[in-house]
Write a protein that binds this DNA or RNA. Structure first.
Lengths: 145, 145
DNA sequence: CCCTTTCCTGCAATTTCGGTTGGAATGCTG
DNA sequence: CAGCATTCCAACCGAAATTGCAGGAAAGGG
């Protein structure tokens, strides 16, 4: 149960974009330099973010990417779902999953669906704006202990 | 971000064992028959559960596995951690991870650690006993919405 | 002694991960 | 218009993990 590097890099990429505001474009080259991620790999990561409508692009010299809306209107869930597709812990729960033949007597599907809900609730409750203001020191957490 | 089949099968295996109580032993052969999982694969799954002290075994004819303690004293988290080792969403948060060089200026580590806590809290809050009494129909959830 | 079962090791096919490579299209700028 | 920076597109690729299966050895009950 791990999130991929694409998930992690996507968050870091979006934080960089958010730091520039939605007007200024930022090239992958500069993100590559500041974050230490190869430009070519970033291309793969930004593509689904673009298709999901979270960022827009301009080509050519002085081109780059920018947020399509303020960072306060984008959640971590938006970003992760753009990369992962469905954010489900097991294939059974995917939106286009075939119906499991032992579904009716399954004792664990409820557990997994509960986990999905807990994860959804968490990632949708944290905005890109909040991410930007987080430092490593102050560990986060809405209101858990 | 998916949990492996071993994680899922481990839960189902443990539910089967719990249904027999901690006295009666149950062979992998019978679990294989009722759950439709190959006996050989189950062997791989039960081994870490045994090493983690969640089940004990007896060899030979009439042998099998049984819980080492009541199902009310075993959580889903216990089972998943036995299979997965650390239950962390990204390698950075593993207990024996090397320190990330960009840790101090990282804006996302807090997010991931929060996710880890949310997951931990959920899986540790559901006991094997609760799993046994779950049906597919009644979706779970302690008190979320 | 035979049968059942756990235990242990090794192998193998497939998929996923984590990228790299190569180039085409587009648009600014001198 | 030439050149350069950038996004876009599509393959490819090695390594690792996933998802098992096979073949036994060891132990215990009947």
């Amino acid at each position: 149960m791990k999130f991929s590097t694409k998930d992690r890099y996507a968050l870091r990429l979006m934080v960089e974009l958010a730091n520039r505001g939605p007007e200024e474009t930022l090239s992958l080259k500069s993100v590559s330099d500041s974050q230490g991620i190869s430009q070519k790999y970033l291309e793969q990561i930004v593509t689904p973010l673009s298709r999901a409508g979270l960022v827009s692009s301009s080509r050519g010299s002085q081109g780059g990417y920018r947020l399509t809306r303020p960072a306060s209107g984008i959640t971590a869930g938006d970003i992760l779902r753009a990369i992962e597709g469905d954010l489900v812990p097991i294939p059974c729960l995917a939106s286009q999953a075939e119906v499991c033949p032992r579904r009716s007597q399954c004792h664990t599907i409820g557990f997994w669906d509960g986990l999905r809900q807990v994860i959804d609730q968490y990632v949708d409750g944290i905005t890109l704006e909040q991410l930007c203001s987080m430092k490593a020191e102050d560990l986060p957490l809405p209101d858990l202990e």
